[in-house]
Design a protein around this nucleic acid. Structure first.
Lengths: 217, 217
DNA sequence: AAACATTTGTCCGTATGTATA
DNA sequence: ATATACATACGGACAAATGTT
């Protein structure tokens, strides 16, 4: 008989595979700049550093290559990709139109609960901006949009955005971009337009919300 | 001294790695239905079938999973994902908006040569439709849009579309969808609007061109 | 419940190909 | 040009995990 209340974990696996751990760690290191752009990645070294063999490292690197974070030159070398400032100009337009589409698709699925969640999240976002916690702001901003995307309920969109968002995070880290108060206002307007079901205006605002950041370069 | 004229191949690698070969073959098999939805994939069997070891097979399967063609249940099994008819409803909207964006971004980069290429490709497309070579039509249609996407010159868009197009091909194979004469007309209109630089109308037509196919279900 | 069969996950040795002296 | 050093690509064996009898 149990005397201690053991929390029953009904979620998937507590134990991540060596490959998943390596993948998460390497991606984080590339995004936050621990692994610098252009840096050469030696699988033997990485394996030693993460305490695993070369196999899960190689598998992780291949996934990271398919996402554009590393480039493998077969038989030669594996390198972290560059972070060109200009890339943000390529990155934001597709991100914007997909987010706009998400909002449109989300409208029929909206509930009071979701709208409430959006409002609460934007309050947190507003706080983060005001207190100048810019990385925190970025993450809360992601959360905000994730709520909408999740309501759109489209697995292809999920996949696209997961990858694009990771690249945005990397850009913000490497180029010290900060979101502004204007984004908070955009979010309130997005919430209103979602409630109103105004597809046309939504698309315009969501695109502006993202593309505005291009001009900071 | 060479007496035979040896053709110097300045293109990249003639020799594909075992992993690349396996990846291409497996993806093709999944798309064309040789490997059926839900089918269990035993890496040892696949390795024997393709004459390689398990390593390149496993690496291929992991890439295919990241694209949504297979699902791996760690420690249990690896299966080909299902092809739900409904998925096309999720697939086409993001494809449409990204294609529309591509057209918009392509406009400033258009040359006479590119427009000529589009016209020639649409002639081929028209032929394929008329002669009821529907798979050929699908491939030429892809080519047509690829010309526009290539002119947009955006690596993130390239990555997104490569994956989405593969899923479209799979849907067309499994559900025997055929493109119609209407698509030929759409293409001519797209060419005209590209020349005119009419972003707004382009977006509308490109979305309709894709989304029309949803209604066939 | 426990031992077995099967499949996946990981490790590491070797072969191949590239860059450098 | 040849040889050497080194990194990756692949193969095969072992370990761990799952499902079954």
């Amino acid at each position: 008989m149990n005397v201690l209340p053991i929390p029953t974990d009904h979620s998937k696996p507590i134990r991540l595979s060596a490959k998943e751990n390596a993948y998460n760690q390497l991606q984080q290191w590339i995004i936050d700049g621990t692994l610098l752009p252009g840096e050469k990645l030696n699988d033997t070294e990485l394996a030693k550093a993460l305490g695993v063999s070369r196999t899960p490292i190689r598998e992780s690197l291949q996934l990271l290559e398919s996402q554009g974070f590393v480039k493998m030159y077969p038989g030669k070398a594996t390198q972290v990709t560059e972070v060109e400032k200009d890339s943000i100009k390529d990155l934001l337009p597709p991100l914007a139109v997909i987010q706009a589409l998400s909002a449109e698709l989300a409208i029929p699925n909206l509930t009071d609960e979701i709208l409430e969640q959006l409002k609460k999240t934007n309050d947190l976002f507003s706080d983060a901006i005001r207190t100048e916690n810019y990385y925190s702001a970025l993450k809360v901003d992601e959360q905000f949009h994730k709520i909408i995307v999740s309501a759109a309920n489209n697995k292809y969109i999920d996949g696209i955005l997961e990858s694009l968002q990771a690249h945005v995070r990397r850009q913000f880290f490497h180029n010290s971009i900060a979101l502004t108060e204007k984004s908070v206002d955009d979010h309130w307007e997005i919430i209103n337009l979602l409630e109103a079901g105004d597809v046309q205006a939504l698309s315009t605002v969501m695109k502006e919300n993202w593309v505005r950041n291009i001009n900071k370069f």
